[in-house]
Design a protein around this nucleic acid. Structure first.
Lengths: 345, 345
DNA sequence: TTCATATGGGAAAGCGCATTCCCGTTGCAA
DNA sequence: TTGCAACGGGAATGCGCTTTCCCATATGAA
């Protein structure tokens, strides 16, 4: 990657390096218009492209914003990524992407890499975990983040604080009211659903999942309902599918219509997909609700009841966009949890 | 973003800058083990993080790979992005993201920004366009890319060559057999479908869309069928939805079962979504096929007939991964195009 | 013992740019 | 006419690192 340099431009224009820099790359001092024109012409003729690395080095600010997600192809993350991207664009920065499949150890690597690139800020999306196997990874991640912040970096975390991070300068959490919203969902569901509830959750220790479970249970309790059984599985479609398979027989055997709360939309879809070939229809034989309100899944039928989350805004907020409204979700009851009376089988 | 520097480490370890560099950041020359240990300790104590900008500047290679997509939240692009990300990870690079909504002018900006950051290579995903409004943008984009390549950059384009780019050194197109696959889809559909066909396409001038239309028409012709009518609309869900609205009355009025080919999956979903509330059911009243085989949409019902594209592999290939198999798609006939006999309404 | 040959550390020259000084001009008031 | 401020351009320094070149020491053969 060689290219023409500023000094080449300066020489061609017959001015000094300093002047060329002032003309081309913005400065408080504006050289005279005729000189500026000469420089611009020279730059144009040479196809000059400023070396951002060198600029960053010289003024120690890279114009980079690092984004850490579990999997960029997951619609949840790609929606957040879009928000981050937009914020970055507004701030005239570029986003650096890292996918980590959620392992804190990988996330630590990513943070280090971002720090190495002197990213101005880092956004971490994806649920925090307190699982024991992640213990060490979490500690290291926290240390890495602390160091990054101490060196002047800004960190935006979606959802929960990074486990063990000392809430330092520049450290900033976009709170997602998972628990409240889940409670709200439970309340609304309890209002129309008579039978029992069941929760298909992610592995224990995943904050997002745990919060939603807790909130849902609280909502049930507030509505005078018994605690729901919780099935633990993977926090993704595959996990939901597995749970669905495990549930099919049981649903068919039981007389009552079970109401399933999958802690996110893709899991709900997975459950439904597993149930369908078994002849278990939603909402006829069981009802189901998800969480996130993933855009791509909105055309899914039966329309999935869920909790809307402004994922794009969340991304924007985490990326430090000042004029993004605070996070506020909303329960969306749709066909998948309709009561039998209204439903036409 | 200040942090401890290599020279601080060197001083603390009591060695020279050169030695510290050799120990910490890899070199052909390996200093003695005891010295190396001292340096590593010092680095650790200071929390040294190498400045990648400075490294890039010094060895003129940034370890960056730029990715240009229309919209990162679009599942088509996020799947490709995942592939790129994986390839980058293998190559020990990071991916820089840019979303451009498909405007060549924006893409040109993005290329310039990547070039400024001295990205080692650039991947451009998203259909090329020859629409007149994009004429100038295309020219500029081509010029920018040419310059980038001439300076030693590598470019990987998904689908079609960038309009007007002189096929230079370092310029590399991942061919997607859109036309052939569409022809194959048409052939398979023609084998079971008696009635007429209709194509819901993107705006004229969008290569991907045009290729798929052309292929489909060819496939029909080869099967002895008349040319299908083509409806032009947006190349996204909204476009499909619009087309669906426009088609509803017509389908209801007609006696025959129309077979619709939407040139991509999200458009197909859009069409279906518009048709459903009108009482037009798939595949009872009309059949529909898409293209891409988007993962998130696989649980959609009726299951969408489509053409599978190995999007992740495409991303990998475009990012220059050597051991990724060449692109090969496959027609997937599913429920949405089943013939009446087999379908249970 | 002596000279040629590794071996390994250090000094220094950049990489491409921003920026701080410095200095020659110019404009204007005194 | 003189003096001073304001202006605008240039030389030089440094951002943090890699890498070449040089030099001191250790090693082996003669």
């Amino acid at each position: 990657m060689a290219a023409s340099t500023l000094s080449e431009v300066a020489r061609l224009a017959g001015v000094s390096l300093a002047t060329a820099s002032r003309v081309l790359n913005g400065s408080t001092r504006k050289p005279a218009e005729d000189i500026a024109e000469r420089v611009r012409e020279a730059a144009d003729k040479l196809g000059y492209v400023p070396n951002a690395q060198a600029q960053a080095l010289a003024k120690s600010s890279s114009g980079l914003i690092g984004l850490i997600v579990h999997d960029i192809a997951d619609p949840y993350f790609s929606a957040i990524a879009r928000g981050v991207q937009e914020a970055a664009h507004q701030q005239n920065r570029m986003v650096l992407l890292a996918s980590t499949s959620g392992a804190p150890a990988d996330e630590k690597e990513a943070v280090a890499a971002f720090a190495a690139r002197r990213a101005d800020s880092i956004v971490i999306a994806g649920s925090r975990s307190v699982r024991t196997e992640d213990k060490q990874g979490n500690t290291e991640l926290a240390a890495e983040l602390d160091r990054y912040c101490r060196n002047g970096g800004h960190v935006g975390v979606v959802g929960h604080p990074v486990v063990g991070a000392s809430t330092d300068e520049g450290y900033h959490v976009v709170k997602v009211p998972n628990e409240e919203l889940s409670a709200g969902l439970a309340a609304e569901l309890a209002a129309t659903h008579e039978g029992s509830f069941l929760i298909v959750a992610g592995p224990e220790g995943l904050y997002t999942s745990d919060d939603r479970v807790r909130g849902f249970q609280r909502g049930l309790a507030d509505a005078g309902r018994p605690t729901a059984e919780v099935i633990r599985t993977g926090f993704n479609r595959a996990g939901g599918y597995e749970a669905g398979l495990a549930l099919a027989e049981r649903i068919k055997a039981s007389k009552e219509r079970l109401c399933i709360f999958a802690v996110n939309d893709v899991m709900a879809i997975g459950v439904t997909a597993a149930l369908r070939p078994e002849g278990v229809w939603i909402p006829r034989d069981a009802t189901i609700a998800g969480f996130d309100d993933i855009e791509t899944l909105r055309d899914f039928r039966p329309a999935l009841s869920t909790v809307h989350l402004p994922l794009e805004d969340i991304g924007r907020l985490a990326a430090g966009d000042p004029d993004t409204p605070p996070v506020s979700g909303a329960v969306k009851l749709r066909r998948s949890t309709e009561t039998p009376v209204e439903s036409q089988v």
